[in-house]
Design a protein around this nucleic acid. Structure first.
Length: 786
DNA sequence: ATGCCTCGAGTTCA
DNA sequence: CTCGAGGCAT
């Protein structure tokens, strides 16, 4: 392995070549061939070599990317060929005009364009002499920019030496320095953790980084680069078209956008615009539009410039995704659980094509973090999804006399105290049942599609029904009559001063009311799962409701169940069990359930408890679930083995417990615990309930169900299926015993992907999870159902 | 105790 | 969709 050592000069040259190559593969081709650690090792070796033999250090050595001494200020650089700014277009119409002008002024009838994304970064110019990077400059005003050579050297996507062959003696390459989105996020995450300075957005990050006086700071910022044009070229031949120039740049070692293509005529350009616009959010970098350039360079020369902008190119911008607007007020919304969420009311502003007037601020911490105040000018963004968010405040535009926002002490709706529990992020209105806002949300939740599914009972209607006193509890919905609804509408009209249509149009105007009564009637027939979910118990969502329904089978069982038994079911721990127990302890809640049943709500799918409960409700397990101080699961097992049933334990004096092998301390703790009448009752109730459940199980035969084909498997649905809705697919999979989860993890059995599948599919590929298409799913369902 | 993994809850506009 | 937090495995 160890041959004769090469001379330091040869070794240095070899290292440089290897490192340059690795840089190129990593930053330009995006296809690294050596691991980072290996790269670091090569770098260190080259550095050592150059320190030892300073005569070997060359100006284009990769080690020069870092460590250069800080410069005081930036020298001016005159651009011999001016750096362009492009005219902007926002509509299809403007693009048609642009193409029409080109057709009129040239002999082209259907011109070909070179089209590419417009990066949201910082335009720069790079100068190469005899293939070596000698100077880099910002655009500045187009004529004169700043010399940022030292900073550009540390941008690894900028080649220090050209590759390939045939480059001109002097070559200026123009392009955009930008910060990839992931790198921006990662940088900010780290900055936040280390208490460092957070970058406002990727573009500012790129611009700020390049203007650092110390290149080492620049080197710590994850910048990248795309080339898109030429400047001065001396001593070399150039191709005839812009697209050929781009290919040449790629050969010479410059990163060129892989999204660059050619398009014919206005229609071709617009199609490209829509295609890029559709995948904009999925790109790893920010773009603010696309650029169309006449591909034929002779044509470009013929067309020339108007003022500072070329006639042969145009930037077609996307609607802005970030906009500044003013905070009119900061309001509080009260949710179903009482959660008090601050929301910014904004002066209407167009963001990403829609008018935004509201933006959530999530919680008081978020408001404090951003320091948003009423009157502030803020930057609003519609991020990856649709929901607007306040990104930051513009500090210089803050009017005088503003004060930091604080969560009000009282609920704006019911006046109850707003309480924030220790360690919680969310503040809550303590009004619970008295708070109209919470009651309204409770009814809304009850009527929701996935709950009781009362069609046509929307926000507005519920608002009127509750505030006008027609509906206090959800049970009141089931005794509403047609007359009630018409009367309610009359009063609402009267209150709002609107014309009472009910009187005016007679029969037709009551149609909505008839439909609603019908919808309410329809909703009476429901399932246990839906019913439990509809009650709106804290921590009980669809999934937990389903778990409760399948394990216990009957409403009567569940509504009388002490929390320690609930805890014995998988995925239900202390917190959730207590919340459920607490809900059913409230006599008001029990009354509502009685009323619902009395008014005809019928749960159609009640069944015997799951046979799995036999094991889950072993005495020792139930004892452990009671959370008696000092009684570890091991001690609970000991206790269960020594006594014949719970009653015997309850009756046992302390010395019997000790005689059974329990440590004195544990026995004392148990006796003390049972001395509390509340705990003793819980103990008794728990074991009594256990008896009832097991008896029900036994009397129903209690045979184990045959194993379902997908028993316990976790499946994820993504994209749009052609023949099934997502809900249908879910129901059918669940019927085969599967659990349909919302996100992909290593526990996922397989992913079913429809068309336009998103990030979940990527995740599946990443984790090596099997992916089914719709045909395979349908075949599987057909084979195993019925 | 620590680190997944899932579930619950809240959110905007056309 | 994106947090926060509960449940559970290690």
């Amino acid at each position: 392995m160890t041959g004769p050592a090469p001379s330091p000069a040869r070794r240095a040259a070899a290292l440089r070549e290897r490192i340059d190559d690795a840089n190129h593969r990593y930053h330009v081709l995006d296809d690294p061939d050596i691991p980072d650690a290996e790269y670091d090792r090569l770098m260190r070796e080259l550095e050592a070599l150059e320190t030892e033999h300073p005569e070997l250090a060359t100006p284009d050595s990769p080690t020069r990317r870092v460590g250069a001494t800080p410069s005081r200020t930036f020298a001016e650089v005159h651009h011999e060929i001016r750096m362009l700014s492009l005219a902007n277009a926002f509509s299809d119409e403007e693009i048609h005009d642009f193409v029409r002008r080109i057709v009129e002024r040239t002999d082209e009838t259907d011109p070909l364009f070179s089209v590419e994304p417009k990066f949201d970064g910082l335009a720069i110019s790079l100068r190469y002499e005899d293939g070596v990077f000698v100077r880099g400059a910002t655009r500045g005003d187009g004529d004169t920019g700043e010399d940022v050579t030292a900073n550009l050297r540390v941008v690894k996507a900028v080649p220090l030496r050209l590759r390939g062959r045939g480059w001109p003696r002097v070559l200026e390459v123009r392009g955009e320095v930008y910060m990839p989105r992931a790198a921006f996020e990662a940088y900010n995450d780290r900055a936040r953790r280390d208490g460092g300075k957070v970058l406002a957005n990727p573009r500012n990050g790129a611009a700020g980084s390049l203007r650092q006086l110390d290149p080492r700071v620049t080197a710590s910022r994850p910048l990248s680069f795309y080339a898109y044009a030429l400047g001065v070229v001396e001593g070399g031949e150039l191709p005839e078209t812009h697209s050929a120039v781009l290919m040449l740049l790629r050969e010479w070692g410059f990163p060129v956008s892989t999204l660059a293509e050619t398009a014919r005529g206005a229609e071709g350009c617009l199609a490209y615009y829509r295609r890029i616009g559709a995948c904009r959010d999925a790109l790893p970098f920010d773009i603010d539009g696309v650029v169309y350039k006449l591909d034929d360079l002779a044509g470009q020369r013929e067309l020339g410039f108007v003022g500072r902008t070329p006639r042969w190119a145009i930037a077609h911008k996307f609607p802005a995704q970030e906009q500044a607007t003013r905070v009119v007020s900061i309001d509080i919304n009260i949710g179903r659980t009482g959660a008090a969420t601050p929301a910014a009311k904004l002066e209407p502003v167009q963001v990403g094509g829609v008018t935004v007037t509201n933006a959530t601020l999530h919680n008081a911490d978020q408001v404090a973090r951003l320091d948003v105040r009423v009157g502030d000018t803020v930057i609003v963004r519609r991020a990856g999804d649709v929901i607007p968010e306040v990104v930051r405040v513009v500090p210089d535009q803050r009017p005088p006399g503003t004060v930091p926002w604080a969560m009000p002490a009282h609920c704006p709706v019911c006046g109850s105290d707003i309480v924030r529990e220790e360690g919680e992020v969310i503040a809550r209105c303590s009004g619970e049942l008295v708070c109209p806002a919470q009651r309204k949300e409770a009814v809304f939740h009850f009527a929701a599609r996935r709950a009781m599914d009362i069609e046509g009972l929307g926000e507005r209607l519920i608002e009127d029904l509750t505030t006008l006193g027609f509906v206090g509890s959800v049970a009141d919905l089931y005794r509403l009559t047609l007359d009630d609804l018409i009367e309610m509408k009359r009063r609402a009209d009267e209150r709002d001063g609107t014309t009472p249509e009910t009187v005016k149009a007679g029969k037709i105007a009551t149609r909505w009311a008839e439909n609603l009564i019908e919808a309410i009637a329809q909703s009476r027939a429901t399932t246990l799962e839906r019913f439990l979910y509809a009650l709106g118990i804290e921590h009980v969502g669809e999934s937990t409701a389903k778990t409760l329904a399948t394990w216990f089978g009957r409403l009567e069982t569940i509504r009388r169940l002490p929390w320690p038994l609930l805890k014995r079911v998988p995925d239900i721990g202390s917190e959730v069990a207590r919340a459920i127990g607490h809900f059913f302890e409230q006599s008001g809640n029990q009354q509502v359930i009685d009323d619902l049943l009395a008014r005809g709500v019928a749960i159609g799918d009640e069944h015997a408890p799951s046979p799995k409960l036999r094991e889950a409700l072993e005495i020792e397990a139930v004892l452990a679930a009671l959370e008696i101080p000092k009684l570890t699961p091991k001690r609970a097992a000991q206790l269960a083995a020594a006594f014949d049933g719970a009653a015997a334990i309850l009756a046992a004096p302390e010395h019997h417990l000790v005689a059974a092998g329990l440590p004195a301390e544990t026995a004392a703790a148990l006796v003390a615990w049972l001395a509390d009448p509340d705990q003793a009752r819980l103990f008794g109730d728990t074991f009594a309930a256990r008896e009832r459940v097991l008896a029900d199980l036994a009397s129903s035969g209690g045979d184990d169900a045959p194993a379902a084909p997908l028993d316990g498997q976790s499946i994820v649905l993504t994209g749009t299926l052609a023949t099934l809705t997502r809900d249908q697919a879910r129901t059918r999979l669940e019927a085969l015993g599967a659990k349909v989860a919302g996100s992909v993890s290593k526990k996922t059995a397989f992913v079913v992907a429809g068309s336009e599948a998103g990030s979940k599919l990527d995740k599946a590929a990443e984790l090596g999870i099997e992916v089914w298409d719709e045909a395979r799913l349908l075949a599987f369902l057909a084979e195993h159902e019925g």
